[in-house]
């Protein structure tokens, strides 16, 4: 079975504008959850209604740093001897955003949240593609959400230099059928991970022999998504991507799916 990219979306937190219908549903949600739900909304509005096959939809949300700011908000209350807010606590759990996405859009299939400091989006992409290829899901949202935190930014500045990373989200919708580009031959190899290397960065994304330095943990997924937004028509032998990092490497190709995908860069 083939795996198509049916839609895609990315947006930094600084440019996030929630659609009015979501405002009420997300009034208590943190930035992490808002990013996830907004991206899912942007992608799903370009495809078939979830209600028609709710059980065929699933989602895999990946994150390197998770709900750090909300976690620290809980920690602050504990350190100060204040009563812990149940709302903050329930939003500090890493899968809170996935739960919101499932609830808001009525997704009844698998909803997995995964965390890894290395290639989180592409690990989730591998799992989502495998689930669709195996026929376990008809459609799978794959997201990477990063909120980071001021504490992390300050520690990074002291340890390796450099400014704060921009929070944001990338979301792709994979489908078993459609006209969007085909995702093929995704492979990933890990190397031993040195913690400070994560803060230094050092990912380089290659496409067509040209390499670009990726300057934050969402950058590679955003760069590929931006490519799709500029030119979703994958022709000929397709477009081959390779991502090299101190902690491993990955490669995949996008081939013609006989049509132009409906994705959009936020």
């Amino acid at each position: 079975m083939t795996v198509h990219l049916a839609a895609w979306y990315q947006v930094p937190l600084s440019e996030l504008a929630l659609p009015p219908p979501l405002l009420g549903k997300l009034r208590r949600a943190d930035a992490f959850t808002r990013l996830g739900v907004a991206a899912a909304a942007a992608v799903l509005e370009r495809t078939t209604a979830v209600e028609s096959e709710a059980a065929g939809y699933g989602l895999i949300l990946a994150t390197a740093y998770g709900t750090m700011e909300t976690n620290f908000a809980v920690l602050e209350q504990i350190v100060d001897g204040q009563q812990t807010s149940p709302t903050l606590f329930s939003h500090s759990v890493f899968n809170a955003a996935a739960g919101y996405i499932a609830t808001v859009f009525g997704i009844h299939g698998a909803a997995l949240t995964l965390t890894d400091f290395s290639f989180p989006f592409f690990r989730a992409l591998a799992e989502g593609a495998a689930a669709v290829a195996a026929g376990n899901l008809r459609h799978c949202l794959v997201l990477q959400v990063e909120g980071y935190s001021e504490l992390l930014a300050e520690a990074r500045q002291r340890l390796v230099g450099g400014g704060a990373w921009p929070p944001g989200v990338v979301c792709w919708l994979l489908s078993a059928t459609g006209n969007g580009p085909l995702l093929v031959d995704l492979s990933l190899t890990d190397r031993p991970l040195e913690p400070l290397a994560l803060l230094r960065g050092g990912e380089r994304l290659f496409c067509g022999g040209v390499g670009q330095e990726m300057v934050h943990p969402l950058a590679a997924a955003m760069a590929v998504t931006a490519d799709l937004g500029r030119d979703a028509m994958v022709t000929g032998e397709g477009r081959a991507y390779r991502l090299e990092a101190p902690w491993g490497q990955l490669a995949f190709r996008l081939e013609s799916g006989n049509g132009l995908g409906p994705g959009e860069v936020g």
């Binding site: 059980a55 739960g99 997704i107 009844h108 698998a110």
Partner: peptide
């Protein structure tokens, strides 16, 4: 098997 309630955060 895995499935979501799509009902409530907690």
């Amino acid at each position: 098997g895995i499935a979501g309630d799509a009902h409530h955060p907690t």
